[in-house]
Write a protein that binds this DNA or RNA. Structure first.
Lengths: 220, 220
DNA sequence: ACAGAAGCGGACAGGAAGCGTCCGTTTCGG
DNA sequence: CCGAAACGGACGCTTCCTGTCCGCTTCTGT
């Protein structure tokens, strides 16, 4: 990302920024699958304009997720700075899930559920993994996570809770927190204290909404 | 499903059966989203033939999943007949997941991830829910599941582990068992014994395959 | 304030994928 | 052996996305 490719005319610069903003919004709302046409519409520019500035989606994705990468890395560093081995694990995973719940595009990148920018995604995960490793090793050493679990298990935990986010987001946007605690509890050693469940279960009569809601989404 | 609609000519009857068999296979392999064209190809008949026998997919789905409904209900009844409150819960959920892992269409129906036959799916779940309720209530009464959990939590557990099935099926088809045990462990009371993890975690270097593999699937 | 370059917009053409029909041909049964 | 029933699959339709092209607008420098 050099500074050389800045457009000189001021309408061009303005449009470029509008496009980036629109892309950021739409990636968060609807995932990386949105079309360049969608982004153009949201930005209030013509498709011609968008194709001139960004002939493909990848640079847009790169630009938008640059900052997220830094942010997520910072979360781990903050967690490692926290001296409580259990609390730090809990907190960082919770934070990751908050981000995923708020940003569909980021979730797709982290969980690998998009064909869109595989290298970007790989880079993201490659960078995060060693940090996670250190955190989990510390937890195991301190005896706050079960011995026979692995760093990878925490990745799959994100996948599992991610599924709940997807399923429940427009029925009860905070429901995932309950299952996050449940799944994480499953990774603790035998006599670990029971973490209280942060939100109530969905009432049985609303379960149907949740299950049906899963597939009918999309659109702006 | 009356017996009145049986075709009289023997080639017609044969084709009808071929179509049903092909549909069953494809629903299991690729989910309910397969097209009637796909089914025709697999059955070795022309599309005209399939549209003559089954103008829409729904009766096909009904026919194919009729037997599954009975089978799943039987699983719960078997579980309720088992007098061990914990073992029966573990077993029935494991069995459900085995079915889901083997049959993508069934998974879609159970987890509500298909727009295909919503009423069929609803019926299936409506019939299963009270049975699950009894099982879980028994478990709570016996103190083998945590007090503050609900029957619905076990439904979402299926969703969570279903996500692992999806993610891992062509990297390590049994990996879901590990996360099933982890998630279920999270629903046990404080001093419950640690269920051993049945399969090892995926080696770190193969995690990337798992994550990338999630989106590139489909086709026969 | 004006000319020409730079940028803009969006209609449009092209391609992929699914759906359902139609009709010439084949197969069955009496 | 003949007429009716069933078959097959090419074809046309629709939807959704992609990217281009060109007449029009807006900026910048003189």
């Amino acid at each position: 990302m050099t500074t050389a490719d800045l457009p000189k005319r001021k309408d061009a610069a303005r449009n470029r920024q509008r496009i980036l903003d629109a892309a950021k919004e739409l990636f968060a709302e609807r995932g990386l699958g949105v079309t360049l046409h969608d982004i153009a519409a949201r930005a209030g520019v013509g498709v011609g304009t968008i194709y001139r500035h960004f002939p493909e989606k990848k640079p847009l994705i790169d630009a938008v997720f640059e900052e997220h990468l830094a942010e997520l890395t910072a979360l781990f560093e903050q967690a490692l700075a926290d001296s409580d081995p259990w609390q730090s694990i809990f907190w960082v995973h919770e934070q990751f899930l908050v981000h995923q719940a708020r940003n569909r595009g980021l979730k797709e990148l982290l969980l690998g559920t998009t064909p869109e920018a595989p290298d970007r995604a790989r880079q993201l995960r490659a960078q995060l993994h060693p940090l996670a490793e250190r955190l989990i090793e510390r937890g195991k050493a301190a005896g706050v996570v079960r011995r026979d679990c692995a760093t990878q298990d925490f990745g799959l935990l994100q996948t599992m809770v991610g599924a709940v986010i997807d399923a429940a987001e427009d029925v009860d946007p905070d429901l995932w927190r309950r299952y996050f605690v449940i799944a994480l509890q499953g990774l603790r050693p035998k006599d670990a204290p029971l973490e209280p469940l942060p939100v109530p279960a969905l009432p049985p009569e609303r379960m149907e909404d949740l299950l049906v809601g899963t597939w009918k989404r999309r659109r702006t």
